[in-house]
Amino acid sequence: MRADRRLIDVLRDDLGSTGTKEGCSIGVCGACSVLVDGELLSACLLPAVFADGSVVVTVEGLAQGDELSPLQVAFIREGGFQCGICTPGQLIAATALLAEHRRPSDAEIREWMMGNLCRCTGYHGITRAIKAAAA
């Protein structure tokens, strides 16, 4: 693997796993959020070699077969997305949040989700969805 290849390129171009999105390309928007051995990281910044041998979870890995995760269902019910471009990253970040805090407070949600930009929802629906999934 070439040292300068980013994880996002390997995911999207080599593996055809296009659920992970690229927005800003500089680690600010969170559209490319993935879990690498459980750690929340930006795939646009991460050299692919660093993920070699690790378990990488992308949005494609959140449902169990046909069954959506409670968070995925809540995003649909509560208006957690509109255009959906930020959604894979939001879901990955929120999955990591719920793994850390089973019942996150508003402040914990804000703090944790600050690295995932959404231009559509104004974040209200995202907050509702996370709370509904945690309830």
Partner: peptide
């Protein structure tokens, strides 16, 4: 009744395709 977005499942599973996803 609150709506269930037609494209909801695709958008929360990463299956929804955007222009940059198509090769």
């Amino acid at each position: 009744t609150p709506e269930w977005r037609i494209e909801g499942r695709d958008k929360v599973t990463g299956a929804a395709r955007y222009a940059a996803d198509i090769a």
